[in-house]
């Protein structure tokens, strides 16, 4: 059954907002993001030598007067940011006892951010992944591209193990120039290479942000009775008495989240922890304000 990820009211409320990529990926107020493309614009970037085919109006006549050579002025352009949305569709993302699964939450968040990016003229693409790669939509800046992303998010099947590292490595291959890479996952693959791959992407000029989506049950462990826990990815079963281990469980998951966050931040990769118990609109606004 297709999941409902388009909240029209939310998209309407987000219509007047822009996605400050710098805040999203760095958490600091640096203003709107800048495009790496050069072209007609108002902000001077550099001079280059005139070649036939260039528009004559771009020739800097003052520079010709000083150097006796034709030079063309280049300007920075604020368009054409390429963003890759990586959404985890592994089995563990299908958990949700409070009306919404982690995947639904991640999909809604990804859709909202895609909506914002497309509305401000940037290009947004989508890659779904589980243990293996799912569907891939290359970034496009067209307005109807949002609906293609949304349709894919709504229909993408869930299952299998988590492999965030594989998805990131794939994006590293396909993203030819510096891009914005947003990962939506619970990061339960426990792969120590995650931080290393993220840092590698960052060194290539990409901006990377990881949105760790968790269910409140995972954060609070509100179980009392003797329970047979069944793994959602491997179907492994484990009998446990939550009363005797809650304290230790909470320590373990807190340590994992903190470790993940610390490793990513060391590689200049932002990490946002999101609980599906938090309304999606508030989470988006929090992200837009750069809060962790």
């Amino acid at each position: 059954m297709a999941r409902q990820i388009i909240d029209q009211a939310l998209l309407t409320r987000l219509a007047g907002l822009n996605l400050p990529v710098g805040q999203v990926v760095e958490g600091v107020l640096t203003g709107m993001h800048k495009s790496p493309h050069h072209g007609a614009s108002v902000e001077f970037a550099q001079h280059r030598e005139y070649v036939p085919g260039d528009e004559i109006r771009h020739i800097d006549w003052k520079a010709y007067g000083r150097s006796d050579r034709y030079s063309i002025k280049q300007y920075e352009d604020e368009t054409n940011l390429r963003a890759y949305l990586l959404v985890d569709t592994s089995g563990s993302m299908d958990y949700g006892r409070r009306g919404i699964t982690k995947l639904e939450y991640a999909a809604q968040l990804a859709a909202a951010l895609a909506w914002l990016l497309l509305r401000q003229g940037d290009a947004a693409g989508l890659l779904t992944f589980g243990e293996r790669l799912g569907h891939f939509l290359p970034p496009r800046a067209r307005g109807d591209h949002f609906w293609r992303i949304a349709s894919l998010l709504e229909a993408e099947p869930v299952g299998g193990a988590t492999n965030v590292v594989g998805a990131l490595q794939h994006v590293a291959e396909v993203a030819g120039r510096r891009s914005l890479i947003l990962v939506f996952s619970d990061c339960f693959d426990f792969d120590p290479k995650l931080a290393a791959v993220a840092r590698q992407l960052r060194r290539r000029g990409h901006r990377v942000a990881v949105f760790q989506v968790l269910d409140p049950d995972e954060l609070e462990f509100p179980f009392d009775e003797l329970t047979l826990f069944e793994d959602m990815e491997t179907d492994e079963r484990l009998l446990a008495d939550p009363r005797g281990m809650r304290e230790q469980y909470l320590l373990e998951i807190k340590a994992f989240c903190e470790s993940l966050r610390r490793d990513l931040l060391e590689g200049d990769v932002a990490c946002h922890r999101l609980s599906t118990g938090e309304p999606i609109e508030r989470a988006v606004l929090r992200i837009l304000q750069g809060a962790p």
Partner: peptide, 27 residues
Amino acid sequence: RRKPKVVRFPALEFIRRSQKKTMRRFR
């Protein structure tokens, strides 16, 4: 003594780690 309730849970790894440390003491 009640039969254990079956719960499909994503963070089984953390339960496994916790159980190793606490189950003996709890029992």
